[in-house]
Amino acid sequence: MTEGPSLPILYPMEGVAGKTGEWRTFYPVLDPDLCIKCNICWKYCPDHAIYRADREKDEPISYDYDYCKGCGICAQECPKSAIKMVPQGE
């Protein structure tokens, strides 16, 4: 097999844009007592930054803060208002 040309090819990887959590100005904070484990926030997260809740294990959702950009969709869409957006640093 002959070696091929230098091609503009990139392979899949996590974090191509780095730890995009650094983009945040606000971060989401969950009140686990209010979480009904509906996973609607998980569904609407464009950044894949929410770990799903598990009803059977009674585990609420949780965040991958490395990649959460702090858009606030989860807080807006939560039917129980269990998520609050807090300014970074507070």
Binding site: T2, G4, P5, L7, P8, I9, L10, Y11, P12
Partner: peptide
Amino acid sequence: DPVIALDVENPWAYGSMT
């Protein structure tokens, strides 16, 4: 022995931001 051939088993992106 093609120069390049799409492969779903071994995905890559061609011509992304460089």
